[in-house]
């Protein structure tokens, strides 16, 4: 009886497994295979075994390492801004009012808007000739005549801020849900003990937000690390590589330079980096929870 039920279970599970193998596992395995080959589309229509040479090339590629450093800044910056914005909005929306009920829906707009729309909108807002936001910044003397996106020293900051603007609602909703689950009694007890608002936030709210913040940061961090579309539309990795992230670099290698295998090698390296980081990150979280 038990084995029959078990067989039926596997049978029900099989379609999902097959789909996963085909669309999840196969591309990853194929990418790993490609990373050990040399497939330069200007020389060959098929991959040629290359061993570890692709990885040696990767280690010696200075543009890649610069992109990696930029991607770390972009990822950490995006997540940090998303957390700050998300926390502020979540605290604001946690108060019960009619406006907040409407705002809770509206605040999701940047998150649900397609990246292409967000990117074009912000590109025009920051345009030196037509951009409304640029004009405001210009009037306050915060920028010169040219757009932030043309300035190599500020372009990364600008696209990071846009990325955070898009991702912050997701953080807001997660933090808001957690805030609403904190029992009111905790705050009442703290008030009886003489805790002011700051101390209530510091000793009750913030510690209880940490677990969800950690998980959300990991999810949003992974999304930011792999990001491509927003930067590609806004700057194409420029000006002068100032916003060249790993995702953009990988795209260029594949579609512009026809370096199919090298693009795969970069992809595998990104995957391994994220796996290692996620494992350490979640391991530390687990350790903290059990301590």
């Amino acid at each position: 009886m038990g084995s029959r039920r078990s067989a039926a279970g596997y049978l029900f599970f099989a379609p999902a497994l097959i789909v996963f193998l085909l669309v999840g596992l196969y591309p990853i395995l194929y990418q790993i295979y490609l990373s050990f080959t040399d497939w330069y589309l200007l020389r060959s229509l098929t991959p040629v075994w290359y061993g570890l040479d692709g990885y040696k090339r990767l280690l010696a590629d200075t543009v890649l390492w610069e992109s990696f450093l930029r991607t770390i800044i972009w990822t950490v910056g995006t997540v940090a801004l998303e957390f700050v914005i998300g926390l502020l909005f979540a605290l604001l929306l946690n108060r019960r009012s009619r406006i907040n009920a409407i705002l809770s829906g509206l605040i999701l707009l940047p998150w649900v808007a397609p990246s292409i729309v967000v990117a074009y909108t912000w590109r025009w807002l920051l345009d030196g000739q037509y951009g409304a936001l640029h004009q405001v910044l210009y009037q306050f003397g915060l920028v010169g005549e040219r757009s932030l996106l043309v300035d190599p020293s500020l372009a990364l900051l600008a696209v990071t801020a846009v990325s955070a603007w898009k991702g912050a609602p997701f953080m807001t909703i997660a933090l808001l849900a957690t805030l609403k689950s904190i029992p009111e009694e905790l705050y009442e007890a703290a008030a009886v003990d003489g805790a002011n608002l700051w101390n209530q936030f510091r000793f009750i709210t913030f510690p209880l937000l940490i677990p969800v913040s950690v998980v959300m940061s990991l999810i949003l961090g992974v999304l930011a690390f792999y990001s491509f579309d927003l930067v590609w539309i806004m700057t194409k990795g420029g000006p002068t590589d100032a916003t060249l992230l790993l995702g953009v670099y990988l795209f260029r290698q594949f579609f512009e330079r026809n370096e199919l295998s090298y693009a795969a090698t970069i992809g595998v390296a990104m995957l391994l980096l994220l796996l290692a980081f996620s494992s350490v990150y979640l391991g530390l979280l687990r350790k903290r929870q059990t301590a």
Partner: peptide, 21 residues
């Protein structure tokens, strides 16, 4: 040529031309 020239391509320049700039 406009201040954003390093980031300008056909799309923006044709718009500027059509607006008489």
């Amino acid at each position: 040529t406009p201040p954003d020239t390093p980031n300008y391509s056909r799309e923006q320049l044709v718009q500027m031309l059509s607006e008489g700039k």
